[in-house]
Design a protein around this nucleic acid. Structure first.
Length: 236
DNA sequence: ACATTAAGTGATT
DNA sequence: AATCACTTAATGT
């Protein structure tokens, strides 16, 4: 049992090391990731006008109140988008995966509104920053761009609706469940390397409450609890 | 061995 | 479901 834990944190460690293969240029990553999404003409334009960026894990990419001047196209890694409530607690909104862009950006940056969310690199991230100024042009010039934009907005909108009624209609135990499922899918593993404290923060709850709910689930035989680690069992 | 941080729990609101 | 106060367990130095 404890060997399993050690192995798992070892692998977690290894997989988050900077990859040597990342000598690949962002242009290549872009063509790989968006090959089927944009026509090559647009890909060329992105390559010449965009700026490749990389961000270490844990760094904030956009903070509250900041005016966003770039649209990010995520090529690698994972961006976490959060919203803060009156008491300063942060609620997890959604993740932006490679091949996606942040839908909030359209609603904020195009009209120079300050950001209402905070975006942080959940894993080391590589993305292309596209100047907002290009957007208007591209929307009319490139149908693929337009549909890409509309698609991401539509997807995110559905997710937000889902998040909304989860908060409004579901109780915390159900939210916790779907949160754990999400985390597990995301890492492709039944082991979740998070403390109760961290989970509580993302669900805008408190550590004690999360501990209690998790303990209950453990007693029901649906998962196992360790320090900084949770293992989902098959009957989860 | 000691300090620090994570997790468990009863009682109260 | 949240908060307080306190205990116990795991981990780091």
């Amino acid at each position: 049992m404890s060997l399993e834990i050690r192995l798992n944190s070892y692998f977690k460690c290894v997989s988050s090391l900077p990859l040597m293969e990342s000598e690949v240029s962002w242009q290549d990553l872009l063509r790989q990731e968006f090959r089927d999404v944009f026509e090559s003409e647009l890909l060329d334009e992105i390559c010449s006008l965009g700026q490749g960026k990389s961000v270490e894990e844990g760094r904030t990419i956009v903070d509250y109140g900041q005016i966003v001047k770039f649209m990010p196209l995520v090529l690698k890694g994972l961006i976490k988008v959060m919203r803060r409530d009156e008491e300063g607690r942060e609620l997890l909104l959604y993740f932006v995966h490679p091949g996606e862009t942040c839908a909030m950006t359209f609603t904020c940056c195009m009209q120079q509104h300050p950001s209402e969310v905070r975006a942080e690199a959940e894993e080391a991230v590589v993305y292309v920053a596209l100047p907002v100024a290009l957007m208007d042009d591209w929307l009319v010039r490139y149908p693929t761009w337009k549909s890409f934009v509309m698609k991401t907005i539509r997807r995110r909108f559905h997710e937000l609706l889902h998040a909304l009624d989860e908060v409004a209609f579901h109780h915390l135990d159900q939210r916790l469940e779907s949160y754990l499922r999400m985390r597990s899918e995301q890492s492709g593993s039944r082991l979740i390397n998070l403390s109760h404290e961290e989970i509580a923060r993302e669900l805008a709850s408190s550590r004690v409450v999360i501990s209690r709910l998790l303990k209950k689930m453990e007693n029901e035989g649906r998962l196992l609890l360790y320090r900084n680690q949770i293992k989902l069992l098959s009957k989860f």
